[in-house]
Write a protein that binds this DNA or RNA. Sequence first.
DNA 1: AACATGCGCAACCGCTCGGAT
DNA 2: CATCCGAGCGGTTGCGCATGT
Length: 438
Amino acid sequence: MSLKSLQNGDEVLRKGPWMPEEDEILVEYVRQFGARDWSSIRTKGLLPRTGKSCRLRWVNKLKPDLKRSGCKFSPEEEKLVVEMQAKLGNKWAKIASCLPGRTDNDVKNFWSTRQKRILRALQRPKMPSGSTDASADTSDLSKDPSLTNFGAFQVHNPCGAAPLIGSAMGPHFLFAEDGDNEFREAVATDIRHCHMHRHHVHTFNSLEADDILNSHKLLKPLSIGDMIPYTIEKDHLLNTMGKELVETKPTTYLHVQPLSVAFPCANMASRNTRSIKRRPRSRRDVRSSTILSCFEQPVVDSIDNCHMDGTATLLSEMNPNNFSYSNRPSHTTPIDSATSLQQNNNYLEFLLQSDGSLMQNNVQVFSPELNPLFLTNTHQWEKLPVLYSEDNSALYGGCNIKEVDSCSPDSVITNFTPDVFDSLEPLNSTPPEWWVVH
DNA sequence: AACATGCGCAACCGCTCGGAT
DNA sequence: CATCCGAGCGGTTGCGCATGT
């Protein structure tokens, strides 16, 4: 056992791993004097350790009721950590206070390990089978217990390690299934970094999603295309998002969209990309999802002026006569599909021009249907084909709704872990082109 | 079997905060 | 009010074990 020590005047302070005898002395000290005045342990000559070291040893290892070392975090604990981290940030002590038997160090180490595991999975990509590289490697993610709940995805990058989207600036997504409008999942990141005034497109983490959905369910089920007056959720948001954040954007609408994905994409013409794909787990997985975005009133107005954003393209193809706007502001009207391309462009421009913050953060939030290029019906987990052919036209218009549903664009992120974007490194200054494939 | 690499965890370090003086 | 000092927090490091080659 390595044991460091340092000379401090006449006394030698021990560092490094604790020996059982030291633990016994420390436990006896706490029994007699309580868990305080740690420095006096050294001044009394009981242990040649700093008070700081003694306190740490007690808090992290010797305190009663701690879960034994090596005791894995349960799925419930993991879920709680993920949710609280999304809300509080790295307030490990605060988070640990909600997890009996866990210390801040436990939570911190758990989170760090988890982040590294996800990052490794993203940065150690292999080419899909059917291409020139090996088959997809899901080992890292498949080890993640949370993925039994949330599924898996992977990023492929023929060019090597893949810088992805910004870490703390990652988007929040809300998803609702078409049928029951039940939110299934969120890609949760730190709400503090998703300030609407900067981003215009606002998304929410899973806890907030629940609140919003629960609130809205009181009125009616959600449908794609709904615009939910923000005031409906204001009280709920007040509770979940903090007073300051809510009060700075009083005239916001929640906009229910098909699932959007976030990706920097400077050059859509390039075919040399990485892609995100996921492993379908069941038929249920490939059902469409929806995403809630939140727009400030001016943004809503701009959308209204073009009557609809890019969402309309796909939706109007799906069922142009059955497009629900029931919760949109009364002055808005549905669009016809003939104008959808222009509206796509409007929406794209809106995204690109929304003060540039989206691109600043190397995160672009697109609806997949903004550009049919992103839609393909051929991508299966088991036999990933060439993601894009050299022939754009083969992909353009190559999907109808049925085909999309077989592996819908929505499904890409449906199974992301709640915090997956947290772990990703920001793009460097000259990112290679990449985008998300469904 | 030997070596390399990956991984998790315990402990340390530097900093901030707040109470005492 | 300023300073000191202990306690606590979050980030980082390094060790030892596990796994892969």
